[in-house]
C-alpha cells in the first residue's frame, strides 16, 4: 500500500517523468539498431534527421520555458512563504536535534531544546534551522515514510523552512547531510495534533 502512496507524491511524479525519458531513450536505441542494417547516403540522412532536430529543438525550448515558469513559482524559500502561524527554532548537533518554540537568541551550543516537539496541524510552521557544529539536514518524514520537506542545518547560518502539516500524527526527523559516525541515527520527532 505504501508503495502505491509513493506514486502519488512529488517523488512519484519525478519517477514517472524519468521513466518516460528512459523509455524514449531505449526506443531511440532500438530504432537505431534496427535501421542501421541498411545503407543510405549521409547527406540524405542528415537532411531527414536535421528536419526532425529543428522541430525537436523548438519543442524542447518551449517545454523548458513552460516548466521553468511553472516550477519556479513553487519554491520553498522565505520569499515565497506566507506569514507563519508558529515559529520553531531547530539546532542540529552531532548527533541530535534540539527543538523549541519561538525564535532563540542563544548560541546553538547554549540553546536548550528537545528532540521531540508538539505542533498543530493545518497551520504554517516556520522552522528556523541552524547547526552548532557541522552541516546537517533537517528532513521531515510523514508516517508513511515519505520525505515531505527539508533544509540544511548549517553552522553560522539560519535557514527558514516553512511547512503545513496536513494531518495529525507523528512525523519523524532524520538527518540527510552526512555529519559523521552516528549520522544514520540522528533522530527527532514531531507530534502533530
Amino acid at each position: 500500500m505504501s508503495q502505491l502512496i509513493v506514486l502519488l507524491t512529488v517523488q512519484g511524479y519525478a519517477a514517472i517523468i524519468s521513466l518516460a525519458g528512459a523509455i524514449l531513450v531505449i526506443a531511440v536505441v532500438l530504432f537505431l539498431l534496427r535501421t542501421s542494417t541498411t545503407q543510405e547516403d549521409k547527406l540524405a540522412v542528415k537532411k531527414k534527421v536535421y528536419k526532425i532536430r529543428g522541430r525537436y529543438f523548438f519543442a524542447l525550448v518551449t517545454c523548458i520555458i513552460i516548466l521553468l515558469l511553472v516550477t519556479l513559482q513553487l519554491l520553498p524559500y522565505p520569499k515565497f512563504q506566507s506569514e507563519p502561524g508558529e515559529v520553531v527554532t531547530v539546532v542540529g548537533m552531532q548527533w541530535m536535534w534540539k527543538m523549541a518554540p519561538g525564535t532563540s537568541i542563544e548560541t546553538p551550543a547554549a540553546f536548550t531544546g528537545n528532540n521531540e516537539i508538539t505542533l498543530p496541524a493545518n497551520k504554517a510552521i516556520r522552522f528556523i534551522v541552524t547547526s552548532g557544529d557541522v552541516n546537517h539536514d533537517f528532513a521531515i518524514y510523514d508516517n508513511n515514510g515519505v520525505l515531505v520537506a527539508q533544509t540544511q542545518a548549517m553552522p553560522q547560518y539560519h535557514n527558514e523552512l516553512q511547512y503545513v502539516f496536513p494531518q495529525k500524527g507523528d512525523y519523524e526527523i532524520l538527518c540527510l547531510e552526512y555529519c559523521g559516525l552516528a549520522h544514520a541515527i540522528m533522530l527527532g520527532k514531531i507530534h502533530v495534533q
Partner: peptide, 15 residues
Amino acid sequence: VVDSTISINKVLHNT
C-alpha cells in the same frame, strides 16, 4: 535534470 528542479529537489535531495 528532474532532480535539478528546485520544487522536486526538496524531496529528492540527499536521497
